[in-house]
Amino acid sequence: MSEVKFSKEHEWITLEGEVATIGITKHATEMLGDIVFAELPEKGSNVEKDSTAGVVESTKAASDVYTPLSGEIVDTNEKIVDDPAKINEDPEGAAWFFKLKLKDISEMDSLMNKEEYDKFAKESGS
């Protein structure tokens, strides 16, 4: 598996062949608080980079989940829909959101590595 990459919308991305696995970062879950609802994109649908591809809700508010890459949704993690608390428990592991067959692998180039993301998250503070 490739190095973990990160987006400015606080998603993490790993790549295996041409399929990316995407979830939200630990930093994002800490900002959101206890997650009580998750909505995922439909399997088989096509999504464009930076468009909405899901929703997470805490007791306080709803937040969109964006896809940092374009492609076809090939798998979704229904376990987090059944038990959204899993997202807080293991955001960067078991609680992935969806798998995407990439349309254009070069879109990966705009993503950050861990060091860059940690700095970004600290500075943005949000």
């Binding site: 608080g33 206890d34 009580v36 805490s58 007791t59 306080k60 608390a85 807080n88």
Partner: peptide, 10 residues
């Protein structure tokens, strides 16, 4: 305080 370290649900 909107919440403490335990979080709203706990």
């Amino acid at each position: 305080p909107v919440q403490y370290s335990d979080g709203i649900i706990k």
